[in-house]
Every structure is written in C-alpha cells, then in structure tokens.
Simulated scan of single mutants.
Amino acid sequence: MSDRLTRRGMLAFGAAAGLGATALAGSAYAQTTTPAPKFLPLPLEAKPRPVPAEGYILDRIGDAMYAVTAGGNQTPFVVTRTGVVLIDAPPSLATVLPSAIRRVTDKPVTHVIYSHSHADHIAGAAAFGDVFRIAHEETARTIRVARDPNRPMPTVTFRDRYRLNVGGQHFELSYPGVNHEAGNIIIHVPQQRAAVMMDVVIPGWAPFLNWGTADSVPGILTAHDGLAKLPIETFVGGHIHRLGTPRDIKDSRDFSYDLWHTTQRAVAETRIGDYFAQVEPGHQWGAFKLHYQAIADRVEPEMIQRWGDKLAGVDIWTRDNATTIAVSLLLDAPRNVQ
C-alpha cells in the first residue's frame, strides 16, 4: 500500500466503501505514527456538502428523478406512475436508500438497473426482493461467476442497446464498450435530462487509482466521448459529494485525454534501454520499474501544474495512472485514440 494512504485516508476510503471508523481503528494501519502528508487543498467545487440530520443528501433531478448521496457514495432512482426504478443498490446505502425513497413516494421498487457488476454499487440489490433487473450481458456473466447472493442475477440482459419503458418514463441503456469494467453502461433518462454512468466521471475530481481497476483505459476515453454527446443537464457518477453537469464531463474528459497524451509523449521521450543498463542483466522487472518511474516523474508535475487547482486529487493518483496508461500504450496499443 502506498505510504501516501495514511490513517486519515484509510478512514475516508472506508467511509466511501461503507466501512465504519471502528472497523478501521483496530487495524494495524490505524496504529501508524507517520505524520499526515500534505495534499493539495480541495477546490471549492470538490468540497463536501453539509449532510442533514437524516444522514444523507437527497437531490431532486427533473420532476421525477432523485439521487441519494451519503458517505462518498450515491445512487439515483426515478418515480414512475407504476413504481420506482432504482439504478444500482449500494450496500453502503442499505439503510438510507429505502428511507429516502419513502420520503418522496409510497410506490414500491419494481425495477433495478445494474450499472455494472461491482459490489460497491449493486450488492444491496437482494434487499429489494424479486424485482425486474436489467444489466449488460457482461455484467450478468461476472455476477454468475461471483456467486454472490447479494447480487441477484438480472432478469434480462442486452448487448448494445436496451430501451426500458416504465410508467411513462423512458430509460435508454447503451454500452460504449469495455471501460471501467466490461459491462459498465451509460443510462440516459431523457425526460429528466439526466445520465448515469458509474466510476468514469467523478464530478470535480481527478480519476481514482487506475480508474478503479479499469478493464480498459482506452475504453474510459471512449466512454467520456459518449457521455459528452448526451443532451443532459445532470450527471450521476456514483461517488464523492455532489452531482455533475456537462461541464464536469468535459473537465474529466479533457483531463483524461491530457493525461493520456502527456504520458504518450513521456513514453516516446524516455528510452527503456537506459534503464536496462542500470540493473542486473536480465532483470526485466527492475528495468521496467525504473522506466515507469521516470515516465511518471515527467508526467506528474505537468498535470499538477495544469490541473491542480481545477480538479481535486490530481496530486494523489496521477503517477499511478500515468503508469497504467504507459502499460496500456504498450499492450492495448490503440489506434482509435486521438
């Protein structure tokens, strides 16, 4: 684990993942005496919002859509004439989500749309019983292998596009290809002028470590392209403190492309042969380690200079994400990224 992830960082991550401070306090990491590192201050738009006494924030989107945010996680739902369509069911919101739904309607949850298979987003789905569940076929495949009873199998799956009509509300589900995860979809709710895509754009923030174990970094860029074309006013990204806007999508897209191109240039300017000369003959891993460190040394200060006061966390994961891109350039070798 990086020495940048201090006790305070662990507690913050634990809250985002739905873990209590008590659980973390007993860990070996909680006993560290390492001084807290100095991070760049959060830009104004990345700071947390006050949380009401209920313990969660309930945002209204359009005339029938809402989003629940608590502990760094968020998920939306839409109230239709016949029932509630829930988009994901994070286990960290297991207590507050039913309460938030009851605040605005007495209608039952009849449908759950799975954004993708990750447990932090859908491992609360079983609590809603035998509802109609929709997911991409890759998400269904992953859930089947995981054999997690908290993530029930979807009722129906799709490959490219799926249009869901429930009680006068329309949902356009589309798959831009492998991105954060195989099966991670875009959910467009045109009547509410809103879109949902989890773990790709985090409004106000630079990407998390490796975009949350991204299956495809080029696919992350493609997903940004798809989101940027939607005629929306509100975006739900699944994490941190607030909802997003088209400007947040643009900022995230611009940052991600900038990081890609800056890393691409650094790779071209950093000869790997120089690092093989610094290690024992045949020590491939050592040479690559030094090579990627040198690439990150070039990329990180540039990105902090351009973005450090615009997006939160640019100083946290940029080195790691530059390395991820460098590996992607070598292995994925995409020709469709401009």
Rank of each mutant, 00 (worst) to 15 (best):
N210T: 14
G26F: 08
G219L: 10
N179A: 09
W260R: 05
I122S: 04
M65A: 09
P91Q: 11
L331D: 15
A206Q: 00
G55A: 07
R49A: 13
P35S: 10
N73W: 02
V327I: 14
Y66T: 02
V68P: 03
V104E: 01
Q338L: 07
Q31T: 05
G273P: 00
I232T: 01
V156D: 04
H121M: 12
I134D: 02
A194G: 05
A70I: 02
Y56N: 06
D88A: 10
D297H: 13
D225N: 07
Q74T: 13
E269W: 06
H111N: 02
G9P: 12
E280R: 04
L58F: 06
A23T: 03
L311Y: 03
V200W: 00
A266R: 11
W260Y: 14
G124I: 11
T139L: 05
H180W: 05
I134Y: 12
T263M: 12
D3K: 00
Y275L: 02
I295K: 06
L40D: 12
G273A: 06
P218Y: 09
S328D: 13
A125S: 15
G308P: 04
P152S: 00
P246M: 08
G168M: 10
A125G: 08
R4I: 04
H224L: 15
A223D: 06
L11D: 03
A296D: 04
G177L: 04
R247W: 10
A36D: 14
A53H: 14
H116N: 12
E138S: 15
V299I: 09
Y114T: 12
L209N: 11
L93W: 01
